[in-house]
Write a protein that binds this DNA or RNA. Structure first.
Lengths: 151, 151
DNA sequence: TATTGTTATACTCTATAACTATA
DNA sequence: TATAGTTATAGAGTATAACAATA
C-alpha cells in the first residue's frame, strides 16, 4: 500500500499517513456538513445542480447532465422540478434550436446564500471547540484545500 | 450574515471568510473523494455500514439503523444484502434472543482497505500539484480536521 | 446520419404500517 | 405492555430504450 504512495514528491511514509488522515477527515466532515440542509424539499442532486449553475453560470441540460454525472433523462426531470419550484428559468438556445439554456433565478441565489450561511454557522460552532493555535493551522490550510478541490 | 459568525471567539470578519472557504473546500473535495469508489456494486449506505462496523466493532441491526440515520426495515434489507455478498456475519445476541449481532468478515476488511488505498492514491496524485509549503500547511491542519470531524 | 432533449418503463433505495417473537 | 426485527407495500430518484426535432 505504501508503495503506491511512494511517488509522492515530498516525503514518503509520514506523507502517506498524512494523506490517509486528510482523506478520512475531509470525507467525514463533508458528510456532516451535507446533513446541514436548508431546504429538505430539494434532493441532493437538485441542490448540486443549483450549485453548478451558481458557479458556472447558465448551461444546457446536456452540459448539466455531464457535470453532475447523471443521464440526460434524469436531468430533464430534475430541471423540470426546479423550474416548477421557481428556482431555474428555461430559455431557447440562441444558436441551436434543439438545445435549451437553463439559468438560476433570484430565488435560487437567495436560497443558496441561506444554505451557505447555515452550514457556515454550524461549522463556526464546531470551530469554537478549537484553541487559537488549531484555528490558525486551519486558516492557513483553507486556501490550499480550495486549490485541491478544483485542481 | 456576518452577525451570525460574530460569536466566533477568535476574530470576526476574516474568520467568517475562512470558515466559508473551509466549508466550500471540504464539501467539494469530499464529493470528489466519494466518487473514487472501489466497488460499484455497493450502495453508499452499504459502504457506510461497513465503515461503521470497522470503526465501532460489531453492532445490532437497531444500533446500525440509528447510527446510519436509517429506519429499521431498511437496515434489515441492507444487512441481508451485505450478508449475501459475504461482507458481514450474523450471530445470535448472547443476552437477548430478539436481537442479532452483525460483524464484518475478513473480506469486508480487505475491501475497505482497498477502498481507502484507492482514495489515498487519488488524493496523493492531487497533492502532487502542490508545492512543499502548501503541503506542509495541509499536514499541519490534518489532525485539526480529524478533531473537527468527530467533535 | 448524428445529436439534443423527451417520453415510457423498470430498477434501486428508503420509508411507513402491520406483524411476529421475545423481554 | 414494550421492544427488536421482519414482511408487505408505496414513494423517491435514477437508468435504459425508444422516439421526436433539429443539425
Amino acid at each position: 500500500m505504501l508503495t503506491n504512495m511512494s511517488d509522492l514528491s515530498h516525503g514518503s511514509g509520514e506523507d502517506a499517513a498524512a494523506v490517509n488522515s486528510l482523506r478520512s477527515a475531509v470525507m467525514r466532515l463533508g458528510r456532516r456538513l451535507k446533513h446541514q440542509r436548508v431546504d429538505e424539499s430539494l434532493s441532493p442532486t437538485e441542490m448540486s445542480v443549483l450549485g453548478t449553475l451558481a458557479r458556472c453560470g447558465s448551461a444546457t441540460p446536456g452540459e448539466l447532465a455531464r457535470k453532475e454525472h447523471v443521464q440526460p433523462p434524469s436531468m430533464t426531470r430534475i430541471v423540470a422540478l426546479l423550474e416548477a419550484k421557481g428556482l431555474v428559468r428555461l430559455e431557447p438556445h440562441p444558436d441551436d434550436r434543439r438545445q435549451k439554456v437553463v439559468s438560476q433565478t433570484e430565488e435560487a441565489e437567495a436560497m443558496l446564500e441561506e444554505s451557505r450561511r447555515k452550514r457556515n454557522v454550524w461549522l463556526a460552532s464546531l470551530v469554537e471547540g478549537l484553541d487559537e493555535d488549531e484555528w490558525a493551522k486551519l486558516r492557513a490550510a483553507a486556501p490550499v484545500l480550495e486549490k485541491l478541490a478544483h485542481l
